[in-house]
């Protein structure tokens, strides 16, 4: 009956699994920035091929890699329609009431959708190939320079990582609360906006209370297991970086530079 929640770590021994987690996290940041930089057809083709290559190397099946975007199709369609109809009144095919459908809007909508889609897939690959606490350590490592100005980077990394762990549990709980209130007569399926608004409180308050309760219990459990902030914890000495780690970072940087070059060439054209 149980299926893996989206983005959960899937053990494996692929080249992507074996990469150093800090390098992986850094590579993810660079890749996401690169995705935003892309503005040409060729650029998107390169990006899609690049991410497909990573997915194949990671040994994660395509359905699982795409799982992150499964429930977002409606969101994508809405973005696409909004952009098509509202983005560019100047070169609209025609104008009707507030709608100004245009090719420019459509292609812009498509690029937004594609960017979100690619960013989600690549992030999903990262979380599927890296255990949560390693992501925590990697994040802690990457943001550690901020600790010199007094920011508790260790705690921040821990909080972020635990918050991510709780998403599946809270999602399940939200579903239960929604169903419980619906059987009591709350109207979520109603078309009237006023009734929809009315239904928000019976959802939001229980969800917050449930989340607070879980957070409270977890913090007590963590304390009972000896957590007292980062000081005194075992320092995780990560293995020394290997040629492969540098190689992977280099490839990502090259892709990024390539996209910058393409963007410079394409400065005047936008798709």
């Amino acid at each position: 009956m149980k299926s893996l929640p989206t983005g959960i770590f899937i053990p494996g021994d692929s080249p992507i699994h074996r990469l150093d987690s800090s390098i992986k996290l850094l590579a993810l940041f660079i890749t996401v920035v690169t995705i935003v930089l892309v503005n040409s057809f060729l650029g998107y083709v390169i990006m899609i091929l690049f991410i497909m290559m990573i997915a194949m190397l990671s040994g994660i099946s395509l359905p699982v890699a795409l799982n992150a975007t499964n429930k977002l199709y409606w969101f994508f369609i809405i973005i696409l329609l909004m952009n098509t109809f509202f983005y560019s009144p100047e070169d609209a095919w025609f104008s009707f009431w507030v709608f100004t459908p245009s090719m420019t809007g459509f292609t812009y909508g498509l690029t937004v959708v594609l960017r979100v889609f690619l960013a989600l897939v690549i992030s999903n690959i990262l979380t599927s190939t890296t255990p949560p606490m390693e992501i925590t350590h990697a994040l802690e490592h990457l943001i550690s320079p901020f600790s010199y100005v007094g920011i508790p980077t260790g705690q921040i990394a821990m909080i972020l990582s635990i918050a991510i762990q709780f998403i599946p549990t809270l999602a399940e709980e939200t579903d239960t609360i929604r169903k419980a209130q619906m059987t009591r007569g709350a109207r979520f399926d109603s078309k009237k906006i006023t009734q929809k608004a009315e239904a928000v409180l019976p959802m939001v308050i229980p969800i917050f209370l449930a989340a607070f309760k879980r957070a409270d219990e977890l913090s007590v459990a963590m304390e009972a297991r000896g957590y007292r902030g980062v000081s005194g914890r075992t320092k995780k000495s990560s293995r020394p970086l290997l040629v492969g780690d540098y190689g992977a970072l280099l490839i990502v940087l090259l892709v990024c530079l390539l996209q910058i070059a393409l963007r410079l060439i394409n400065l005047t054209r936008t798709y």
Binding site: E173, T176, I177, K179, A180, Q181, R184, L201, P202, I205, P206, L209, A210
Partner: peptide, 9 residues
């Protein structure tokens, strides 16, 4: 539902 007290608001 199981643990119905969660629905109180």
């Amino acid at each position: 539902f199981q643990y119905p007290e969660i629905q109180l608001f």
